[in-house]
Amino acid sequence: MGFKLLSKLLVYLTASIMAIASPLAFSVDSSGEYPTVSEIPVGEVRLYQIADGVWSHIATQSFDGAVYPSNGLIVRDGDELLLIDTAWGAKNTAALLAEIEKQIGLPVTRAVSTHFHDDRVGGVDVLRAAGVATYASPSTRRLAEVEGNEIPTHSLEGLSSSGDAVRFGPVELFYPGAAHSTDNLIVYVPSASVLYGGCAIYELSRTSAGNVADADLAEWPTSIERIQQHYPEAQFVIPGHGLPGGLDLLKHTTNVVKAHTNRSVVE
């Protein structure tokens, strides 16, 4: 069995187990497998329904001669939608809004960016022009300005110390501490036991640490421990890039980060 097929099978099995364990909360999309990078042309966006009122959005972007996937989250909030992270750029984010209108038909009224990198804030200006209120932590807003990236308009308070959590509509926002970046936030959907790890969490097929220019490698494993301790009931975990899975993604990420750190020390 090929690795790609095995990865998709694991996603399907995880979703099936969740649907059985929580039949009222989960209505997993039966329309197909989780979209992969090879299936999404740059400039297009796919939506994948995880649970009743919960979707991931998947886009792709060219970077350094390669094409990478990027995940975000959409959560229903009454007759409105909360968006977590842009679709990595203005063109993708405009396509995301169009796809949401086509498939869901509810307005996106608020959006949260989970850290300051372009795959999370690139497209904020498109959201703002569409009347979406954009939010991020003060740290993310400051770092985005320093980096020359787009800056969300509103500040999220109460997320300055490791372990801080605040309720934001249908989700809980959690600051686990520094990891992929010093400002990275985690998003949890309690009604569906869905954990969105953003770039602080890796997919299972990833074996290298990737972009760690703004990471705190020493603190990252401790931050992941905080996530595990705060959300032990999480059933569906979405990484910032690639295929979702279960809580095993947290341990896998820790292993990859520690291996990278150990290699760096040896070198």
Rank of each mutant, 00 (worst) to 15 (best):
residue 23 P to F: 10
residue 152 P to M: 13
residue 10 L to R: 08
residue 40 I to G: 07
residue 216 D to P: 14
residue 118 D to K: 07
residue 17 I to C: 03
residue 132 V to D: 01
residue 112 V to W: 12
residue 238 I to L: 06
residue 186 I to T: 13
residue 47 L to H: 02
residue 216 D to R: 13
residue 84 I to K: 01
residue 66 A to K: 10
residue 95 A to S: 07
residue 26 F to P: 15
residue 24 L to N: 05
residue 38 S to N: 06
residue 48 Y to N: 08
residue 55 W to D: 01
residue 128 R to A: 08
residue 37 V to C: 09
residue 167 R to L: 04
residue 180 H to G: 00
residue 163 G to V: 09
residue 176 P to M: 07
residue 179 A to F: 00
residue 55 W to S: 10
residue 195 L to M: 15
residue 222 T to H: 08
residue 209 A to I: 08
residue 84 I to S: 11
residue 263 R to A: 07
residue 98 A to Y: 15
residue 236 F to G: 12
residue 32 G to M: 14
residue 32 G to D: 12
residue 4 K to R: 06
residue 223 S to L: 03
residue 192 A to T: 08
residue 234 A to Q: 05
residue 220 W to I: 14
residue 84 I to G: 11
residue 82 L to Q: 12
residue 125 D to V: 05
residue 170 P to S: 12
residue 176 P to S: 11
residue 104 I to A: 08
residue 240 G to S: 11
residue 229 Q to D: 02
residue 227 I to M: 15
residue 235 Q to L: 02
residue 224 I to F: 05
residue 152 P to S: 11
residue 98 A to R: 09
residue 228 Q to S: 14
residue 252 H to E: 12
residue 183 D to Q: 00
residue 45 V to Y: 02
residue 209 A to M: 11
residue 35 P to C: 14
residue 79 D to W: 13
residue 121 V to W: 01
residue 227 I to F: 03
residue 58 I to Y: 07
residue 153 T to F: 04
residue 50 I to P: 14
residue 256 V to P: 01
residue 137 S to T: 03
residue 122 G to K: 13
residue 182 T to F: 07
residue 105 G to I: 02
residue 243 L to I: 15
residue 101 E to M: 06
residue 21 A to H: 02
residue 92 N to M: 04
residue 68 Y to W: 09
residue 185 L to G: 00
residue 198 G to L: 00
residue 89 G to K: 05
residue 241 H to Q: 01
residue 153 T to A: 06
residue 56 S to D: 04
residue 242 G to M: 02
residue 238 I to E: 12
residue 239 P to M: 01
residue 28 V to E: 06
residue 171 V to D: 00
residue 137 S to Q: 07
residue 234 A to I: 02
residue 171 V to N: 00
residue 146 V to I: 12
residue 259 A to E: 04
residue 234 A to C: 03
residue 67 V to I: 04
residue 13 L to N: 15
residue 131 G to S: 11
residue 212 V to I: 08
residue 172 E to D: 06
residue 221 P to E: 05
residue 164 D to K: 04
residue 68 Y to G: 09
residue 255 N to E: 14
residue 236 F to K: 08
residue 262 N to G: 07
residue 95 A to G: 08
residue 213 A to E: 10
residue 251 K to W: 04
residue 60 T to L: 14
residue 223 S to Q: 03
residue 79 D to K: 13
residue 90 A to P: 10
residue 15 A to W: 13
residue 58 I to T: 06
residue 150 E to M: 03
residue 39 E to H: 13
residue 10 L to C: 14
residue 107 P to R: 14
residue 34 Y to M: 15
residue 249 L to Y: 04
residue 246 G to C: 11
residue 239 P to W: 01
residue 229 Q to C: 09
residue 256 V to S: 10
residue 184 N to P: 01
residue 150 E to W: 13
residue 93 T to C: 13
residue 111 A to T: 10
residue 19 A to H: 00
residue 192 A to V: 08
residue 80 E to G: 12
residue 17 I to D: 03
residue 56 S to R: 10
residue 51 A to D: 12
residue 153 T to G: 09
residue 104 I to Y: 15
residue 206 R to I: 09
residue 237 V to W: 09
residue 73 L to R: 00
residue 83 L to R: 01
residue 206 R to K: 09
residue 267 E to K: 12
residue 119 D to Q: 01
residue 148 G to Y: 03
residue 186 I to L: 10
residue 56 S to F: 14
residue 3 F to C: 10
residue 89 G to L: 10
residue 177 G to F: 00
residue 214 D to M: 04
residue 261 T to M: 04
